[in-house]
Design a protein around this nucleic acid. Structure first.
Lengths: 143, 143
DNA sequence: TTTATTGCTACCAAATTAATAGTAAAAAAT
DNA sequence: ATTTTTTACTATTAATTTGGTAGCAATAAA
């Protein structure tokens, strides 16, 4: 976990870790779509190339946003899971979804919304729900 | 404003517009540091190269996140201002700052916080304050 | 024991980013 | 009025990153 941050600005530091074209989409896949394996991430509609995916997963692991492990009954699949640090990105993702819903829908009528009804009224509740659901998933997998 | 979005996911669409190394830092400069000119942005500690800055400003303008204009009494400086669409990125920036404060401070003791006291207790109030202050700035400049 | 799946790595091409120098227009200074 | 400075870039080239495809080793399934 090298930290060659561009500056001491908290925004710049965050972008130095997750401010690329793919990292937040991997977090989305994990948090919202409950994806866990290299194959799962490869199958996402954006079509990330394997080399890029490989390097991003390594990077996110180095930065403690995700963990990588094999389950005892399956030595083939690697299971990637968000750490608490990664789960805490949920509010950022929530705000991105809301911004997109409000400001980009006109440009992309086909856009699907991850946001259920009630998302806007009760933003932090929905975010917490996503986080707690994910924590439960981790619990189920790792015991 | 071409929209070659990678997918119909609202997160992916947003990242296709602001998901690069620099765009959100320009928005930060405008919203939080009240920077307005090419020179202002160039002076930020992260050291963006002029060619990149130029292309990002064009891109953000094409996507209606910022506007560019000259003031009647100064034909030399270009004044860049956030549009409403740009101002509405404030909640995303707020959440990034909070995440950084909580999860990155250990890695960067020198990190300064844009967040004043009370930020955590009253997140949305602080965000709204930043937005309204900026709207006032725009009003003062454009009348 | 063959076949399929998974998780990659290797390779090369293409695109993007970065660093620096330089230029044109406007404004300020002399 | 003329030089100097400032501002906002563009141009150029080098370096780095990204992207696309093929292929391989290990595990698991048939």
């Amino acid at each position: 976990m090298k930290n060659n941050f561009r500056s001491n600005c908290p925004i710049a530091c965050t972008l130095d870790i997750i401010g690329d074209k793919w990292s937040l989409l991997i977090v989305r896949d994990m948090l919202v779509q409950r994806k866990k394996t290299f194959k799962d991430f490869s199958a996402s509609p954006e079509g990330i190339a394997p080399g890029i995916l490989s390097s991003r997963l390594k990077w996110l692991e180095e930065n403690d946003l995700i963990s990588k492990q094999k389950l005892p009954d399956n030595q083939k699949e690697n299971i990637y899971l968000l750490t608490e640090k990664g789960i805490e990105l949920a509010p950022v993702i929530t705000e991105i979804i809301l911004w997109s819903d409000k400001n980009l829908r006109a440009q992309n009528a086909e856009m699907f919304s991850i946001a259920e009804a009630g998302f806007k009224q009760d933003k932090s509740k929905v975010t917490e729900g996503i986080q707690n659901n994910y924590r439960q998933l981790v619990q189920e997998i790792l015991g």
